[in-house]
Design a protein around this nucleic acid. Structure first.
Lengths: 260, 260
DNA sequence: CAGTGGTCTAGACCACTGG
DNA sequence: CAGTGGTCTAGACCACTGC
């Protein structure tokens, strides 16, 4: 347990005063402590965390300070506030935005037609990480990797072809069967079955020409333009835990982005 | 001047009490009032807005309430806080992120080499809005439009070909000469010369094959895959003020996106 | 009705900037 | 040094949820 040092020592908080290195506001320290509990799995995705008053008592600070800490966690999408009910650990399941990281939308109609989306797993194999994948996943070359290849279809039209690489250590026991059996977002399965929660992601997008294999799987002509999307997804502490290389067919869909 | 109604009428704020329609927190009302002043140009981009205490006095509320209002404006990137100095109206100029809405990055090195970016204006003409463009810009078909076509080159390699459409009414007097003479971000020029500040934007992205003309201008083979980026940029109040249709060459650059 | 998050206030003090 | 935004507290009251 870290020592909380109140930078403005009015009524002097908590325990012994250690050397305060730079200057970190109290609410940032509280945020860090709550974050540690989230990582440690003290509260599971979907569960409520303690109320603001409880946390204020636990950390020996005012409710306002806890509030500001939680505000930031909510802004980072790590936690969801619900008035009158409590504050809950964010989850990829039961989120009315079914696919939080998927920016592909149909050209007409803002939403996907319910249930008309279908996943076909083509492959699921174990392998040793080549240098480039190892680097992106912060592993060493040769470490165990799991690769999954699948096609996503919307209204029976194959639209996305993607390869997913996961660190073997954290995803022991993942198989095509278990993946195929799961209903709902893949990231929700990672939470439930492997205790891995994806918190943010980074994508690199380019336009490429379909090679023969990609063309066949997506039922387009070889050489057709495809959107290449490389995504690295991170858990807590900016630890990369997944790499996806996907090819989106954008004849009837588009990638939508909001700029602020 | 709108009437401020304090939903929790402790010491009862300001003027006469009107019919409060739904329920809007005080700080939201304050935010709205500040927003109005921003729109009205009461403070210009880059200038400081009044201090928190001043605004608190002006609106007859506590500093904390003004603070929360400004916090949201800062979160929306409408305003920038600088400790010890003040709060400033956001601007596309003097923003260390030179191109706030441009997500294209070189594959190696996170930043563009300074000054190695070059703009070539190919065309600048007046026209009447066809139906599709009119709809996107919330105009009527036949309204005056200005179209600009240009190529952006990085390190002497033509990389972006884009068409820009602007409502003729708001951009009277825009010409290829004035555009060419301007140093710095185009959006900064819109602020300075036309008083139009772009606040947010929405992009639709797809992969397409280069046609003959695009290929020639970007010095690639016809049929090469290009990233098609359609952007609608908005001023205050979600009023669309610019449409761009751009084609990015992604052989040495990529579109980077952060997902939260 | 009790418990949760949400709003608002008033006041004290800190960190940073500039003259 | 005065003025700005930033932190922290304590307390009152409101809006929403569910028992």
């Amino acid at each position: 347990m870290a020592t909380i040092s109140n930078p403005h020592a009015d009524a002097a908080a908590a325990a012994a005063e250690a050397g305060t290195p730079a200057f970190s506001p109290l609410y940032q320290q509280i945020k860090g402590l709550i974050l540690q509990s989230l990582q440690a799995g003290e509260w599971k995705p979907g569960e409520a965390i303690p109320s603001e008053v409880d946390l204020a008592v636990r950390f020996r600070v005012s409710q306002g300070t806890v509030r500001k800490a939680i505000d930031e966690l909510a802004a980072d999408n790590l936690v969801v506030r619900r008035q009158g009910k409590g504050t809950f650990v964010a989850t990829h399941a039961e989120q009315h935005v079914q696919y939080r990281f998927l920016r592909l939308k149909p050209d007409s109609g803002d939403e996907f037609s319910e249930g008309a989306t279908q996943r076909t797993i083509l492959d699921c194999r174990r392998q040793r990480a080549p240098a480039d994948l190892a680097r992106l996943l912060a592993l060493r070359a040769g470490d165990a990797l799991i690769q999954v290849r699948r096609v996503l279809s919307f209204d029976d039209a194959p639209t996305i072809l993607e390869d997913i690489w996961l660190p073997g250590a954290a995803f022991k026991g993942l198989s095509a069967e278990r993946l195929g059996a799961w209903r709902g977002p893949t990231y929700a399965m990672f939470e439930n079955e492997f205790g891995v929660r994806m918190v943010r992601a980074q994508e690199k997008i380019r336009a490429v020409a379909a090679d023969a294999q990609q063309a066949a799987l997506l039922q387009v002509k070889p050489g057709s333009p495809l959107l290449s999307v490389e995504r690295v997804a991170f858990t807590y502490n900016d630890v990369p835990m997944e790499l996806r290389r996907a090819f989106y067919c954008t004849s009837t869909h588009h990638y939508r982005n909001e700029l602020n």
